[in-house]
Design a protein around this nucleic acid. Structure first.
Lengths: 214, 214
DNA sequence: CGGGCGATTGATTGCCTTCAAACGTGGTGG
DNA sequence: CCACCACGTTTGAAGGCAATCAATCGCCCG
C-alpha cells in the first residue's frame, strides 16, 4: 500500500525527526487520551481517524480537530493533555513516549525545529478555526471544511469522510441538520456530489472556494 | 507605580527567562506587526493594551486575544507572524529580538522550558476560545469574557476595560449591539455595575460564573 | 455650544436551531 | 433469505436568538 513499508511503526514529525514507536489499535469511539491525563505520549495515525475535543461543564462538545492517516497529534507542550482524543472508526496508531521526543530535540537542534514547526502549524490551525467559528455563516463553514478535508485526503476527484454529520457539526459550531442542509445545498449548486452520505465527489472546487469566502 | 522599577525594560517569560529589551511607544490603533511580516521580535506590554487578530478576505475581523500590562505576545514559532497586532490605546511595549530568546533557550534548558510553557498556555487559550465561539450563547460568551478579563486586571472590586464594545464583539463573534445588550442584562441581574461604559464593578462573581456555564 | 464617535435601546428581519417525521442502510435474528 | 430494528441522515415546519436597521443618548474635545 504505502511506498515505504519500513515506516510502519515510525512517527515522522519532519525531515529530521523520526521516532520508532509501538503500534496500537482503538475501536470506534474508544478514548485515546483524556483531559487532565499525563501527556506522556505522542501519536501518529496509521489507519482510521481521530477527533480531539473539549467540553463545556454541561456537556456541549466542541471538536477542535480531526487527525487523518499520516498525521501526528497529542503533542502537548504542557504536562497534561488539555483535550480528549477518540477514534472515529477502528483506528491503528503508532505511539511514542514523549520523553523520546524531548531527548531527540535536546540532542539535535534540527529535531527541535521540527517540533516547533509542528506546534506552529497547530496554533495556526487553531486561529483559522477561531476565524471560522466567530465570523462565518453556516454555508461558509461547511465549504471551508470540505476544502480543508479534501486537501488532506483527496485521491483523484473524490474521497470518503471519516466522520459523521454530528462530528462535523461539533467541529463547525453548528447542528447536524444545518450541516446536512448545507451539504444538500452544495450538491444543488454542483459544487459536490454525494453518492452516499460519507462519499464526496469534488465537482467544482472554485464554487466551493467562493462559498467559503476565506 | 510598579513594585520593581528595574523591570522597566525587561521581558519576563518565566522564572528562568528574563531578557533586556528596548522600550517603544505605539499610538491608539497603530499596527505593531502585521500578518506575513518576519516574526523577528517578541513583545511585552508595559502600559496600555494590545489586540491580535485575523481577517477574512472580505474584511470581517476576528480578534484572537487581548494583551494587558505585564503580558507577553508576538511569540511566534514559525518564521512569520500569522496574525496582526494593534494597540488598543496609547501603549508602551518592551521589544526583544527573537534571536535573543532563541539563544537563551539554546543555552539554558530552563529558559527553553519557560518558552514551551508560554506556547502551551497560548494554545490552551486558543482552544478555550474555540469552545466559546462554537458552543456558547451570547450571554455565556460575555460572562466568560468578563470573568477572564477581571481575573487579569482586577484590583479590588472593579477595573477599566481597555477595549471598545466593537473589540469585544469581534473577540466573541458577536455584534456590538448584542454585546451591549448582554452587558445591560448582566447589570440588571446585579452581576456587575457599569458606572461608565468602560468601567466595570464586579458585584456578584458567582452569578457571572453561572451565566458563563463553562 | 456644536460636532463626532461610541454606546445604548428599540423594531424588525432572518438565519440557524429546535422539534418532528420520514428515509435509507447496515446488521441481526428469526 | 428476509423481516425487522437501530442508527445516521435528510427533509419539513415552526420558533427563537442574534443580526440588522434605525434612532437616540452621552461624552469627550474642539
Amino acid at each position: 500500500m504505502s511506498a515505504s513499508q519500513q515506516n510502519a511503526d515510525v512517527i515522522n514529525l519532519g525531515p529530521a525527526l523520526s521516532l520508532r514507536g509501538t503500534r496500537m489499535h482503538f475501536d470506534r469511539n474508544a478514548e485515546i487520551f483524556g483531559e487532565d491525563e499525563a501527556a506522556d505520549y505522542v501519536y501518529c495515525v496509521v489507519s482510521g481517524a481521530v477527533r480531539t475535543m473539549r467540553f463545556t461543564s454541561d456537556g456541549r462538545r466542541q471538536i477542535l480537530g480531526f487527525h487523518l492517516p499520516g498525521e501526528v497529534f497529542g503533542v502537548e507542550l504542557g504536562a497534561k493533555y488539555t483535550l480528549t482524543a477518540e477514534a472515529l472508526s477502528p483506528t491503528d496508531l503508532v505511539i511514542v513516549r514523549r520523553s523520546l521526543l524531548e531527548k531527540a530535540s535536546a540532542e539535535d537542534p534540527r529535531a527541535a525545529r521540527c517540533w516547533l514547526e509542528y506546534a506552529s502549524r497547530t496554533l495556526d490551525e487553531a486561529r483559522d478555526h477561531a476565524l471560522i467559528l466567530g465570523r462565518k455563516s453556516a454555508g461558509e463553514r461547511v465549504a471551508a471544511f470540505l476544502l480543508g478535508i479534501s486537501k488532506r485526503l483527496l485521491h483523484g476527484t473524490d474521497f470518503d469522510l471519516p466522520m459523521s454529520r454530528a462530528d462535523i457539526a461539533d467541529y463547525l459550531g453548528l447542528t447536524i441538520e444545518t450541516v446536512s442542509r448545507s451539504f444538500t445545498e452544495m450538491e444543488r449548486q454542483s459544487a459536490i456530489a454525494l453518492p452516499s452520505s460519507r462519499h464526496v465527489v469534488m465537482r467544482n472546487r472554485s464554487t466551493l472556494a467562493l462559498a467559503a469566502a476565506a
